[in-house]
């Protein structure tokens, strides 16, 4: 029976080893790779090459902008959907299922789906033509119209990944006892006040999780962008890919990876700090 004490360690050991090798170690390796020169010494060469690259500034700009636009949109939309779900009297299960379908759809697939809409002979142009707004197909996804590509990416990302936020929020809402809202109602709070003063503060932990998760995924955005705009809308993860694959330069690719990592960690810390639970909520 004394072996009991070691059993849990034996059970977690394989996953710990695995994560050390495939998570902790590559994390370190990415840092090392980015600061190691061709000769083997320490250098900032990779970062300098990255910063000097034509695409770098745009990639940084578009990646950050995408996260800034997409994540709030998704959270607001998901919050609306979660509240809407609570207000539905019939068909909740069906709506829940359909709304969460995008959970299973990959970013690449989402990009291709929205390509069908935004492409030259796609559904958007067909619709505009039917409305009499255009006569000839417009070219939306070209290097001359990066903002249109940006818009298409936003549409695809909101379409695909709002479901994740939605599920996290619904799960969080289920953990909030109905009594709080009912008590507020008894004391005369309107639905709007109940949402802002009771539901939303209690939902903070779930919101935090959703924000962190979505922001990190948004900073990794890659396949959607490639499918819709190729390199016409450069993003950080995409640049890392091109530097590794096309230019065969792991050092600069690693530098890009480090930038993405850095921004991710920073964003996580900001969220954790901004949404720190207050004492009374922790109780």
């Amino acid at each position: 029976m004394r072996t009991e004490r070691y059993l849990p360690y034996a059970l977690i050991a394989p996953s710990v080893l695995f994560l050390l090798f495939f998570f902790a170690w590559p994390l370190l390796e990415a840092l090392l790779l980015s600061v190691r020169g061709g000769g083997g010494g320490w250098t900032l060469e990779n970062f300098q090459r990255m910063a000097a690259d034509l695409y770098f500034k745009d990639a940084l700009k578009y990646t950050l902008l995408l996260a800034l636009v997409v994540v709030p949109l998704q959270v607001v939309l998901a919050l609306g959907m979660a509240m809407l779900l609570g207000g539905l009297s019939r068909g909740r299960d069906l709506f829940l299922y359909v709304w969460t379908i995008p959970l299973g759809i990959s970013d690449l697939a989402a990009g291709i789906v929205w390509l069908a809409i935004f492409t030259e002979r796609g559904y958007l142009n067909s619709l505009l033509q039917a409305l009499g707004l255009i006569e000839q197909p417009q070219l939306w996804l070209s290097y001359e119209t990066p903002w249109m590509i940006f818009l298409a990416v936003v549409a695809a990302e909101v379409w695909r990944a709002t479901a994740i936020v939605f599920v996290i929020l619904v799960a969080g809402l289920q953990l909030i006892p109905k009594e709080y809202s009912e008590a507020a109602e008894v004391f005369g709070a309107t639905p709007w006040q109940r949402f802002w003063r009771v539901t939303l503060p209690l939902l903070k932990p779930s919101l935090q999780v959703a924000l962190i998760l979505r922001t990190i995924l948004a900073l990794e955005v890659f396949a959607v962008v490639v499918a819709l705009g190729g390199r016409n809308l450069p993003v950080l993860a995409g640049e890392a890919y091109y530097w590794y694959n096309a230019y065969q330069n792991p050092g600069v690719a690693a530098a890009y990876a480090v930038v993405v990592l850095g921004i991710s960690v920073l964003a996580t810390l900001v969220y954790l700090r901004l949404m720190r639970p207050r004492q009374e909520e922790a109780a």
């Binding site: 390796e29 090392l32 790779l33 995924l217 990794e220 993860a237 792991p250 991710s264």
Partner: peptide, 17 residues
């Protein structure tokens, strides 16, 4: 913690290894 990091990006150092 694995959630606070973009894991796919780690494919770059792993590819080398």
């Amino acid at each position: 913690m694995t959630r606070a990091f973009p894991l796919a990006i780690l494919a770059i150092p792993l590819a080398v290894r």
